[in-house]
Write a protein that binds this DNA or RNA. Structure first.
Lengths: 181, 181
DNA sequence: TTGAATTTTCAATAATTTTTGAAAATTGTA
DNA sequence: TACAATTTTCAAAAATTATTGAAAATTCAA
């Protein structure tokens, strides 16, 4: 696939953003390319379009697949593997959130849970543990909430989001009465 | 401040997690230390506790301040700067979300907005642009929604989150009727 | 002002991460 | 099974990022 100025900018942007997230430039660019490609691409096409080595693409695909941000497909009479990004943006959000939770939130929650089991030996430890408890409570609540919300269909979610503004208007009033902004 | 096994584990965990987010190990550890510290710490104390060079701490503090995850304070009769992490976990969430939006979402949105202004020259470009439009719409909607939600007070938000489960139960039913998961 | 205390900068070094090419492994088919 | 096509692995090289110590800059009290 040939990059035009329009698509190149998109691809490069995702490369740079990639490094702000945990993924590297290569992976970001490959993903962006698959996202806008009208048809699945094979590894050589990706390597050529982005000027990466073939093996780099192989690594990148492994990473993307582990994030479930790319899928493999095949063409009849062609042994090569073709890759495509999931089409549905809601699905992508969903997947990303789930993987982030698995890789970042869950380990943190277990660390916190374990820390909360310990008996603090000093005032400092007591204080530290109290802070960890606060963090644990909020993270857990947010996670549970997020899980719930994620079970909703895209349509319902969109509806809820649009509703958000209204909920805010109603509730915002109460908040202001309590001086909470 | 002296690290105990309990607090050390917490600090190291945040160091490692830091690298999954865009921030580095040092910054992650400093933040964790400030978070659990019962009182503000000065740069030397931080450097000593975490075995970093003084200058590394200086860099790290600059970064943390830019994320608004640390504040400076002073003690009377002491010229050194003391640092502390904001106490309120809701505030921290809020701040983080805001900075992430500013640094990652907004640049992406402007790139997309610009790309959407271009007139596509080929079918491929037309397709690419359509995909970008989908992405733009969802990201923008999510952002606006998030802004709205963020205006709510922590109390209201907690209420909404607890409500989440119920909303889901009611709405989930409708979804199932429509065969949507 | 001066100068001691403190913080910041910055170029050099260290450490880590990414990228590559070549070799090994795998896959599907003749 | 044998072999050609394809993918993966992996150690070395390249690139990037983090860390440091020394020097410069800043701050504030005398």
């Amino acid at each position: 696939m040939q990059l035009t100025p329009l698509t190149e900018r998109f691809v490069l942007h995702f490369g740079e953003m990639g490094s702000r997230w945990g993924i590297n430039r290569t992976v970001g660019q490959i993903y962006a390319l698959l996202f806008i490609s009208p048809q699945p691409l094979n590894a050589d096409e990706i390597a050529e379009t982005l000027s990466f080595s073939r093996s780099n693409v192989s690594m990148g695909m492994k990473e993307l697949m582990s994030w479930r941000l790319a899928r493999m497909s095949h063409r009849s009479g062609d042994r090569r593997e073709y890759f495509e990004a999931p089409k549905d943006i809601w699905e992508i959000f969903h997947t990303l959130a789930e993987e982030k939770r698995r890789r970042e939130i869950e380990p943190t929650l277990s660390m916190l849970r374990e820390a909360l089991l310990a008996t603090p030996q000093t005032d400092e430890e007591r204080h530290a543990q109290a802070r960890m408890r606060e963090m644990h409570e909020l993270v857990e609540m947010a996670t549970v909430w997020f899980e719930e919300v994620q079970r909703l269909s895209p349509e319902t979610l969109e509806g809820l989001m649009r509703l958000g503004a209204k909920v805010q208007k109603v509730l915002g009033f109460t908040d202001k009465l309590r001086g909470k902004e």
